[in-house]
């Protein structure tokens, strides 16, 4: 090129697109394939209960019910989860701390 001004030829665009796509194209294709499979499955599945069910806004975010459930029916998983959370936090701290301060 004689001039230093930047100019885009169609070839440059194609090349840059190509360079962008080249490492990603298979991932893209696969993701799209998976997406299409799922979307097609959803679309062609009849959801019979969908329309008959009463739609109530209050019902949809019934926080109190969730709390009650957690502390009654799911109390043991909840406690276990708390322990898992605690231990994972301890592990994370231990790992992230490193051995700077001996």
């Amino acid at each position: 090129m004689l001039n230093k001004e930047v100019s885009f030829t169609p070839m440059d665009v194609i090349t840059s697109v190509y360079n962008y796509l080249k490492p990603r194209i298979w991932g893209m294709i696969l993701a799209l394939l998976f997406l299409s499979v799922i979307v097609v499955s959803i679309a062609f599945t009849s959801w019979p209960t969908m329309d008959q069910l009463p739609q109530n806004l209050e019902d949809q975010s019934y926080i109190e019910g969730i709390g009650v459930l957690i502390f009654t029916e799911f109390v043991i998983p909840f406690e276990i989860l708390s322990i898992v959370l605690l231990s994972s936090l301890m592990g994370a701290i231990y790992m992230a701390k490193g051995d700077d301060n001996k």
Binding site: L30, A31, L32, F34, L35
Partner: peptide
Amino acid sequence: IFSIGLYGLMT
């Protein structure tokens, strides 16, 4: 959303 995650995971 899952597919986006998938794409990211793979690439």
